[in-house]
Design a protein around this nucleic acid. Structure first.
Lengths: 143, 143
DNA sequence: TTCAAAAAAGACAAATCTATCCTTTATTAA
DNA sequence: TTAATAAAGGATAGATTTGTCTTTTTTGAA
């Protein structure tokens, strides 16, 4: 459902957000280490997050990545949209193109209800709130 | 979360089950048409379903694929296990290897609860029950 | 017993996703 | 203004998934 790139992206965004509140702008290398992801690939992921304005980047010395206030309030579904596209939580479990309440696949009703619960939590959880939990030491970004 | 092959597999299994109750054993070509999937690839998918004893195959003239009674009672999670492996509904949303209640990622608790609801419905829904709904004309395998 | 039908098996091709590396552009401080 | 730093962009490579094709094996009926 969620690609590896997208998982890196969520981890990276949450880490960046957790540093941003301390006015720190980590660079690619540090971020890659903190989320245990390959540096070069992390760079690509960050490029995308920046392009979609989920994080902000600054080039040059003392540059790096950070979140502005309004970015901390973005729901994590925005990260999924940026990395994997909006369809992820809308696709049919059985792969039917035109699956809907009117033309349902055999699993449509039981599946779509539960998938919507998942979608809702992605819509209601902000990057900032995850970052706060991380800073609180209750949760982890590393193994 | 669920691969394309697995989606084909669920569609194929449900179609085969729906025919099995009428004592019909469709072949690869017919199945591929009914589920709107590429025939050659459908053959591979069916091979796997057969290997995992989710459907039974019969070679030679008058051969094809069918479900035995006990196979109709298999939950669809078995198809997912056969095609994508058992990990699908257990993996961390954020990609952490060692994510658990004791060492949670920032999204662990809200995510795993909802994912378990999904898992439950895959465990509780049988191939036969989906086939019955299909035969009842309430749901569809095609676009 | 032989022939034809159909799945199994294996090799291979195409597409997508993951990952790396090198060059270019922007920014800051000296 | 220049040198150094760091992200952006582009090209490319590797891995995995999806898909095809050909040959082999099994089976049933004439």
């Amino acid at each position: 459902m969620i690609s590896k790139s997208c998982k890196y992206a969520i981890r990276a965004a949450v880490y960046i957000a957790s540093q941003a509140v301390k006015d720190i702008k980590p660079g690619v290398k540090e971020i890659a280490e903190e989320i245990e992801a390959p540096p070069a690939f992390t760079a690509k992921v960050l490029q995308n997050l920046s392009k979609y304005k989920i994080v902000t980047s600054l080039k040059g010395p003392y540059g790096g990545f950070y979140c502005e206030q309004h970015q901390l309030e973005l729901p994590v579904i925005e990260i999924v949209n940026a990395m994997d596209g909006v369809a992820v939580f809308k696709e049919c479990v059985m792969g039917l193109h035109s699956c809907s309440d009117e033309h349902p696949c055999p699993m449509h009703f039981q599946y779509s209800e539960k998938r919507n619960n998942l979608l809702l939590s992605f819509q209601q959880t902000t990057i900032g709130s995850l970052a706060r939990d991380l800073s609180g030491g209750k949760v982890y970004l590393k193994n």
